[in-house]
C-alpha cells in the first residue's frame, strides 16, 4: 500500500510538472500569436498579361501539378470594369498554398490600362484578404502582369497594412514597355521608377527574361525586362534576374516553359526540388 502511495504522488508531481509549464506556454503562445501572427494560409496570386483571361495559367498549373507533391487548389477571379468580382473555382480545405488567379475583364495593353488594372488588382486583393484572412502571400506576374504587380506593390499594398508579400516573380515583364533601347525611358517606366520607394523593403523579387534571339522573346525586348533593375535594385532585399534561353522561349510560351516551371518551383514556391532540377537551375544562374 505504501508502495502505491509513492507512485500516486510521483504521478501527480509529473502531471503538475507538465501541466503548469504547458499552461504558461499556451498563454505566452497566444500572446505572441496576437501580436504578430503569420497566417498559415499563404496563397500564390498570379496575374496574367494583357489580352489574357483568367485561364492563362492553366497550362502552368497542370505542368506544376505533374511534378509537385503538393496539390494546389485553384481560385480564379475576374475583376469587372466596375470593380465587381466574378469568382470561379474554390480553395480546398487544408490547402495552405492555393493558387489564386486575378484577371481583368478589361485586359488591354497600354499605360492607362495598366494603371487601372493595378487599382482593380487592389480591389480583388482586399476582397481576398477579407474572405480568406491571410497575411502573407506570393505573387507571380506574366508580361504586363508583372508591371501590374510592381505598381500594386509600390502604391496600393500599403492599404492592407497587415499583409506582407513573401516573394514576387515576374516573367518577361516589360518594365520599359516595348522599347528596345538601353537609354530611352518610356513614361510607363518613369511611373514605375517614380513610385519605387513604395516597394516593401523586405521583398524578394525574381525577374525572368526569355530570349529567342539575342534581343527579345519575340514580343518583349530583353532590354525592357532588364530595366527592372533600375526599379528594384537598392529598394528591395533581394533582386535576382534570370535569363532563360532555348526551346519554348517565345513570349507566350514562357509560363509553361519547363525551365521556368522549375524556377517557379524552386524560387517562388520554395519547394524542395530534386537535386537534378536544382543543379539545372543553378547552372542557369551562372550565365
Amino acid at each position: 500500500m505504501r508502495h502505491n502511495w509513492w507512485r500516486w504522488l510521483l504521478g501527480l508531481v509529473i502531471l503538475l510538472g507538465v501541466s503548469w509549464p504547458a499552461y504558461t506556454w499556451t498563454k505566452a503562445n497566444i500572446k505572441t500569436l496576437k501580436s504578430a501572427g503569420r497566417t498559415r494560409m499563404a496563397p500564390v496570386i498570379m496575374v496574367p498579361g494583357s489580352s489574357a483571361s483568367q485561364n492563362r495559367f492553366d497550362d502552368l498549373i497542370t505542368e506544376l501539378g505533374k511534378e509537385t507533391p503538393q496539390r494546389h487548389s485553384v481560385l480564379k477571379l475576374t475583376v469587372q470594369t466596375d470593380g465587381k468580382i466574378k469568382y470561379s473555382g474554390s480553395i480546398r480545405q487544408n490547402d495552405n498554398q492555393p493558387f489564386i488567379i486575378v484577371a481583368f475583364a478589361d485586359n488591354k495593353d497600354g499605360q492607362a490600362n495598366i494603371d487601372k488594372q493595378a487599382v482593380w488588382l487592389n480591389t480583388a486583393f482586399k476582397a481576398l484578404v477579407k474572405t480568406y484572412r491571410f497575411n502573407h502571400f506570393r505573387a507571380l506576374g506574366h508580361s504586363n502582369g508583372g508591371l501590374i504587380w510592381t505598381l500594386f506593390l509600390e502604391r496600393y499594398l500599403k492599404q492592407s497594412p497587415k499583409v506582407r508579400i513573401d516573394r514576387l516573380m515576374t516573367i518577361a515583364a516589360p518594365f520599359n514597355m516595348e522599347s528596345t533601347s538601353t537609354t530611352t525611358k518610356t513614361s510607363m517606366f518613369k511611373e514605375l521608377y517614380q513610385y519605387r520607394r513604395g516597394l516593401p523593403n523586405g521583398l524578394t523579387a525574381y525577374s525572368i527574361a526569355g530570349t529567342e534571339n539575342y534581343t527579345s522573346d519575340g514580343t518583349v525586348p530583353y532590354n525592357s525586362v532588364n530595366f527592372g533593375k533600375y526599379i528594384f535594385q537598392d529598394q528591395v532585399k533581394h533582386f535576382t534576374e534570370i535569363t532563360v534561353t532555348g526551346a519554348n522561349t517565345a513570349h507566350s510560351d514562357l509560363p509553361q516553359n519547363k525551365q521556368i516551371v522549375s524556377l517557379i518551383r524552386q524560387y517562388l514556391l520554395d519547394e524542395t526540388v530534386s537535386s537534378k532540377i536544382r543543379k539545372q537551375n543553378q547552372r542557369q544562374l551562372k550565365n
Binding site: 500569436l33 501572427g37 480545405q93 487544408n94
Partner: peptide, 17 residues
C-alpha cells in the same frame, strides 16, 4: 491528426485572436 492547417481552423484562430 489533421492538425492546425485546415481553413476552418485558421478561421477559428483568426477569430479568437
Amino acid at each position: 491528426f489533421s492538425g492546425n492547417s485546415s481553413v476552418s481552423t485558421v478561421q477559428n484562430l483568426e477569430y479568437a485572436l
